[in-house]
Design a protein around this nucleic acid. Structure first.
Length: 461
RNA sequence: GGAGAGGUGGCGGAGUGGUCGAACGCGUCGGUCUCGAAAACCGAAGUACCCGCAAGGGUACCGUGGGUUCGAAUCCCACCCUCUCCGCCA
């Protein structure tokens, strides 16, 4: 019942170099087959200006790719054209066959012709597919190109400080958050270790309440003052979603996966952004703004030994995330606006921070431009990242086929997507502890947060 | 988990082997009419890719993937999803 001669034919065709990233490479489980030619990066713009594409990659420290890409692209299109011509002839002949049979004419010559066509077609089709997979594999593994105004640089040392808000207070003998929390008896890493091992925390009593309060506080600001719509999304997602925001195919090792193939979200950016996947929106409903407080799950595979004490770097933490979906002409302004929304939380809490523009070498895979907000931690005596706001341009939108149509236009365009933490709740809790610690080890509750803490002014043992 | 039903264009809903990218209705857009609107009438209208300077031509897509056939929305297989009922459960 299965195809008989066909597979053998296909096998004859081998395809050199098809060991690149194949879609099945990212594991089993769900049906991942949405790859579509010419997504991820705009093949047309690479054709038009290969030098610019390579220059962008070079700023990311990557080698030129346009040569390989365009060669593959050209071969693929040639095959596609050839294949489609055969299909056209087959379709035409098949119609005639129908007509002939009706009229009682002899259709045998046409049948022979189609049979001959069908000798060639599977091989062509197969080759074309394989080239497409190879091409997609390359394109899917290349990061977004940095925006023009992103500073050149190797790592975080080359980031550029944009502004500083608030003045770090000198606290004599400042303690770190875990010292404070453990002394209060409200934060336990031992208890968490018994349950789950390293990189987990158990919060109790007023500290658990503080975590909840912080999240509520942030959500209220983002929804009431910045127009973000609160969302309660799934925390487990399929391959498609993880591919859309570009966790896949490259970063599987950073994620947790269930035995039946779901990915635990590393950030609500994944479900929130994928809300518009495969959509064609009207331009006048833009921008869309979403926010959600969710747990985030990260394997932290590559960070063994980093930030092992305390709750700076955890396998699981709460974060309020903001996602904006905009037209291309809106995204830059939206990026500033979103960053402002994140900063507003820190300002209200009276926490000193600085905002830096990430250099090319420090930016995430999907980002075109990123601002990090770093909060001052007296206990550590340094600024630590508490938010990251990125404009992804159309990079994610291409992957998830998120488009819009301008009023009166016939053609669709890709949307722009942005995401930013507003803020990381766990780290914000750390910042509150360290900045509001008192000599007696108690913690003053920031004024703005008191309504969220039932009026509580101070957390004590 | 058990039993059943079903997945078609923005929506509803036809279509069981050929001229079906898909009837019809609604909605949408343009026009006629009108002082204006409604109604009525006429017309337009899916997405993506390929070839082409263009005009234009072609291919694919009716949940997904395969198969049968000269030809598949229609037949076969597998999978996914949704809905209803029963059971279980937060």
């Amino acid at each position: 019942m299965r195809g008989s001669a066909r597979p053998a034919q296909l096998l004859k065709q081998g395809c050199p170099g098809l060991d690149a990233v194949s879609p099945d490479a990212y594991k089993s489980g769900s049906d991942f087959n949405r790859l579509n030619l010419a997504s991820m990066h705009d093949l047309r713009s690479i054709r038009d200006n290969p030098a610019a594409f390579d220059a962008g990659l070079a700023r990311r420290g990557l080698s030129a790719q346009s040569g390989d890409i365009l060669a593959l692209d050209q071969r693929r299109r040639a095959l596609q054209t050839e294949f489609q011509e055969l299909q056209a002839r087959r379709n035409e002949a098949s119609k005639l066959i129908g007509a002939y049979k009706k009229e009682g004419k002899d259709a045998q010559p046409l049948l022979d012709e189609v049979a001959a066509l069908k000798e060639k077609m599977p091989a062509l089709e197969q080759q074309e597919k394989e080239l497409g997979v190879e091409l997609d594999g390359i394109l899917a593994s290349l990061p977004n190109l940095p925006a023009d105004d992103v500073p050149e640089g190797k790592d975080e040392h080359d980031n550029v400080e944009i502004r500083r808000v608030g003045t770090p207070v000198e606290i004599a003998g400042a303690k770190q958050h875990f010292e404070l929390g453990e002394a209060l008896g409200l934060m336990s890493f031992d208890a968490a270790a018994k349950l789950s091992g390293a990189r987990f925390t158990v919060l109790r009593g007023k500290l658990a309440r503080l975590e909840r309060a912080l999240g509520d506080f942030m959500l209220d600001i983002q929804t009431n003052e910045f127009g973000f719509e609160e969302v309660s999304p799934p925390l487990l997602v399929k391959d498609d979603a993880a591919f859309g925001t570009a966790q896949l195919p490259k970063f599987t090792e950073d994620l947790f996966q269930t035995t039946n193939g779901f990915w635990l979200i590393p950030t609500a950016e994944v479900p929130l952004t994928n809300l518009v996947n495969d959509a064609i929106l009207d331009s006048d409903e833009l921008p869309l703004r979403f926010t959600a407080r969710t747990p985030c799950f990260r394997s932290e595979a590559g960070s063994a030994g980093r930030d092992t004490r305390g709750m700076i770097r955890q396998h699981q933490f709460y974060k309020v995330e903001m996602v904006s979906i905009t037209r291309p002409d809106q995204s830059q302004a939206e990026h500033e606006r979103m960053t402002d929304a994140a900063e507003t939380v820190l300002k209200r809490l009276g926490l000193p921070f600085r905002t830096v523009k990430l250099c090319t070498g420090d930016m995430g895979f999907s980002a075109q431009k990123t601002y990090d907000i770093e909060v001052w931690l007296p206990g550590q005596g340094m600024y630590r990242e508490i938010s990251s706001c990125s404009n992804c341009g159309d990079f994610q939108a291409r992957r998830m086929k998120a488009r819009f149509r301008a009023k009166g236009e016939k053609n669709t365009q890709f949307l722009h997507t942005l995401n930013g933490s507003g803020l990381a709740v766990g780290r914000c809790l750390i910042a509150v502890l360290e900045n509001y610690q008192q000599p007696d080890g108690s913690i003053l509750v920031p004024e703005a947060l008191r309504p969220y803490m039932g009026g509580l002014e101070r957390i004590t043992a």
